[in-house]
């Protein structure tokens, strides 16, 4: 009965509901967008009423917000932090810099497409997205978690070779600890 397909589905539904209502955001700002996190979390926009909370370390966090441009140096750290997080884990690309490079599209040290290096679940458009947009994006994330579609961690493990190849292209001498991802 426990391994029954239907009961598994029910358990999954309940788990996804819990995951969507308790989203711990890693307090790690990569770019200028981190300035929008403070009003989103504090009394003006109060994301905690929706279940969002800051988590201090990657081990405890569920979501990583890539807040803005990512330099080549930061990508390494972000990948490391992402691999330290415990699945299920989600990535939210924040601002136009993560989507297509934004105003830094021709800069030699910022990457353009975030989803070549990490599986992104939700993109939030804008430069910078205001807290309303951030909350809208997080609500979208909640929705896809509830539907069970936020499977970025599995996608990352399945296509690990491709992601690692892309990461090695910008950081050739960097040894990433694949595939057990246990930093």
């Amino acid at each position: 009965m426990y391994n029954d397909k239907n009961s598994k589905k029910i358990v999954e539904t309940i788990q996804n509901w819990a995951r969507s209502h308790s989203v711990w955001v890693l307090a790690y700002g990569t770019g200028c967008g981190a300035i929008e996190i403070a009003p989103t979390m504090t009394s003006r926009y109060d994301a905690e009423r929706l279940g969002f909370r800051g988590a201090a370390t990657p081990r405890q966090a569920d979501v990583m917000l890539i807040t803005g441009y990512l330099t080549v140096k930061t990508v390494k750290r972000v990948v490391r932090v992402y691999e330290q997080m415990q699945s299920p884990k989600y990535v939210v690309g924040f601002g136009s810099c993560t989507i297509n490079g934004g105003m830094y599209y021709d800069s030699y040290n910022t990457i353009n497409l975030l989803d070549r290096y990490l599986p992104v679940d939700v993109y939030i458009n804008g430069c910078m997205p205001r807290p309303e947009a951030v909350i809208a994006g997080l609500a979208k994330l909640q929705q896809i978690i509830r539907e069970g579609k936020a499977n970025g961690a599995e996608k990352y493990l399945e296509n690990l070779e491709w992601y690692k190849e892309n990461q090695r292209k910008i950081a050739p001498n960097w040894i990433a600890k694949a595939p057990d991802l246990n930093w």
Partner: peptide, 14 residues
């Protein structure tokens, strides 16, 4: 140093 050329070579454009 041609930045755009380097970017085209190293990164991708959407």
């Amino acid at each position: 140093f041609d930045t755009l050329e380097y970017v085209n070579r190293t990164f991708w454009h959407r």
